[in-house]
Design a binder for these strands. Structure first.
Length: 632
RNA sequence: GCCAGCGUAGCUCAGUUGGAAGAGCAGCGGUUUCGUAAACCGCAGGUCAGCAGUUCGAAUCUGCUCGCUGGCUCCA
């Protein structure tokens, strides 16, 4: 007999009994045996501590989805025996599996695969764990001509490798898995996509099938409904509905045309930015959209990114639409000798840049070719680094909060360990910069993920990513050290000791791209901007045309208060006009009928709240004032 | 850029095996004067993304181009 501790209870079981023998709960799919993940078929050989895992935990979901991906691979292999299988992990939401097939999958194939999966699940085939010597596994997959698996096994350092078997389907896998295929209660295959083997553009393109699975049909339905709802607040849909912007096929992709309402929102965001930056000690500059090729050769951008630049022939040379603002700011810095007393010197500009992003990556406002960057460059001394980084983070958090963003992810990207030659700058510079970034993050109490090898070639950086309606991450804020430009442009300052010294250059953008930021903002607010950002803040409407005169008076008084007001006295029913204003997500609607005219009042309706009562216009203005001031 | 799918009126979408291009909303003209999310009648609106081909006949089939969507890769 051996002792088992489970949920604070101790009991004894026969030696070598399986974990599954101890439990009756069908929701349990795997276990932690002394803290190590294992299948329920695992035998208990010694005294141990046991924890049970079901779908409700993150790790449980991963196991469940991973098992579903095996079932999908089984179905694919039985329908398309010649398909080579590559990898099929669980992901944040669901799972995928990559296959190399002669003929690509079609949507009809997905239906067939789904049907086959249902059959496999109905058969309730057990997942069996097998361990074998690595060489034997390589030989096994070689015999089956599964070259992707062979490649994967070869990369495993251990001498022993685990496989999972369902009847004659055998896959390389660390596990664990649900005990049998019948544990997957409900699932859906969602999409087909191409994916490079090992994520490498030079390798073959595989067919990837994405899917999701749940133990309960209700959960699947809720998940699909959530996807549907996310579509409702897609910024591309809302952008059209609310007449914010267009991207015209005939004018070029990735180029945004802001309609009056969108342009107004953009302008308000820019004005807020301008105020905050002036207050934070930035000096506002403005630089041209185009510069001689020479400048981009000197900066080094030409060599690295010329494929993504818009290059124009002008007389005997090339001019280039600026893909970034840095060289311009540097030229201004260099226009005279700078003293250590001038530092830190901070330039900022809402600069329009153009980048020839790959066509397949363009995505509404979130990835465009004409980008408004809220660019800033900090030129400082080494001793000022931490202080300046903290100030940038402080300003960033203030601005993100202003827009109600409280869900974001922070990455600290540093250089890779083994490919230092890829990066510019000395060890000393990299270490100093990373230390600065880390201590600024720590000082601001921010959680972050350290991403090794994700730095840009010229320096380490902090990125802040916002989420769209579907939970996809989009980089907004970026704070980057640059060990490249100071050398290339010889950006220096005169120090106390009369020596010319190289400045520390830090790039930073808080919105990142205004286009992207507004795209995220639309989805974040579901198109219902807060009062201070609303293109139309108040809609005034008389109930019948007998109140037109009074409505007009109210309208004019609100205009005088510098509010963005619209008068809607169209000859439509009041309900119709209320709906019109609600669909446009106007924060406030003022309705005036006979009662209001007689008592010199207004009836107020608030977006998403409905009727909030009758009041004097003065009280309404106080309400608005409060609403406008409430966000700082 | 790569893989797959899609492109019909301003918007959302029907359109069967190739056989006379449709609806709702929006727009315009009337009627209606109404109490918190869609009044009624009428009118107009389309080179079915573009080009080429197959066919007696193409929105429908084929090829190419452009654009979009979901991924992959990339994002200075």
């Amino acid at each position: 007999m051996v002792k088992v501790k489970l949920k604070r209870k101790n009991f004894k079981v026969e030696k070598d009994s399986r974990i599954s023998d101890l439990i009756t709960d069908k929701k349990v799919i795997a276990a932690l045996l002394n803290g190590k993940l294992c299948d329920l078929s695992k035998e208990i050989t010694n005294d141990c501590q046991l924890e049970l895992i079901n779908f409700s935990s993150d790790i449980g979901k991963k196991i469940y989805w991973h098992s579903a991906s095996h079932i999908m691979a089984m179905a694919v292999k039985s329908l398309f025996p010649k398909a080579k299988y590559a990898i099929g992990p669980a992901i944040e939401q669901g799972f995928y599996y990559d296959f190399d097939t002669k003929k690509r999958f079609s949507p009809e194939d997905l239906e067939k695969i789904e049907k086959k999966m249902v059959e496999i699940i109905a058969k309730n085939i057990p997942f069996e764990r097998i361990t074998m010597k690595k060489e034997a596994v390589i030989e096994f997959f070689n015999r089956r001509e599964e070259q992707y698996k062979v490649e994967l096994v070869k990369a495993i350092p251990d001498p022993e490798v685990s496989l999972y078997r369902n009847n004659d389907f055998i896959d390389l896998c660390a596990g664990p898995h649900v005990p049998s295929t019948g544990y997957i209660k409900t699932f859906k295959l969602l999409s087909i996509a191409g994916a490079y083997w090992r994520g490498d553009i030079h390798q073959s393109m595989l067919s990837r099938i994405y899917g999701i699975a749940f133990p309960d049909n209700k959960e699947l339905k809720a998940y699909l409904k959530k996807l549907e709802e996310a579509k409702q607040r897609d910024h591309r849909r809302l952008g059209t509905e609310l007449e914010l912007y267009s991207i015209f096929e005939e004018a070029g992709s990735g180029l945004v045309y802001w309609h009056p309402k969108g342009a107004l929102v953009k302008r308000l965001i820019e004005e807020y930015w301008l105020q905050e930056h002036i207050n934070a000690g930035y000096l506002i500059v403005s630089t041209p959209h185009i510069a001689r090729g020479h400048l981009w050769h000197q900066s080094g951008h030409y060599a690295f990114y010329h494929e993504h630049m818009f290059i124009l022939p002008v007389e005997n040379e090339e001019y280039i639409l600026k893909p970034m603002n840095c060289p311009g700011h540097i030229l201004i810095y260099k226009s005279k000798v700078r003293s250590y007393k001038d530092l830190p010197l901070k330039y900022a500009e809402l600069g329009q840049v153009y980048r020839n992003e790959l066509s397949g990556t363009l995505h509404g406002l979130l990835r465009v070719r004409g980008i408004t960057i809220d660019d800033g460059h900090i030129f400082c001394q080494p001793s000022q680094i931490v202080d300046e980084l903290c100030k940038v983070l402080e300003l960033t958090l203030k601005i993100l909060k202003k827009f109600g963003f409280d869900h974001y992810k922070i990455d600290l990207s540093v250089r890779g360990q083994h490919d230092k030659e890829k990066y510019m700058g000395s060890d000393e510079e990299w270490i100093r910069a990373e230390k600065g970034l880390v201590s600024a993050l720590d000082k601001m109490n921010l959680e972050y993920a350290r991403k090794q090898g994700e730095a840009v070639f010229y320096g380490p950086k902090i990125d802040i990513k916002l989420l769209d309606a579907l939970g996809r991450e989009w980089q907004a804020t970026t704070i980057q050290f640059d060990f490249n430009l100071p050398k290339r442009f010889k950006i220096e300052y005169m120090d106390k000791d009369g020596q010319h010294k190289e400045v520390v250059a830090i790039h930073r953008a808080i919105y990142g791209s205004l286009e992207r930021f507004i795209g995220c903002l639309i989805e974040h607010y579901k198109g219902a901007f807060p009062l201070w950002l609303s293109p139309v803040q108040v809609v005034v409407m008389p109930i019948t045309n007998k109140q037109n005169k009074y409505a007009n008076k109210v309208f004019k008084r609100l205009l005088k208060q510098k509010l963005r007001v619209e008068l809607n006295d169209k000859s439509e029913k009041m309900n119709y006009r209320i709906r019109e204003a609600e669909v446009q997500k106007a924060p406030y609607i003022i309705i005036v009928g006979k009662r209001e005219v007689d008592n010199n009042t207004v009836s107020v309706r608030k977006h998403s709240k409905g009727d909030i009562g009758i009041m004097k216009l003065k009280d309404f203005l106080n309400l608005i004032k409060k609403d406008l001031g409430g966000n700082d």
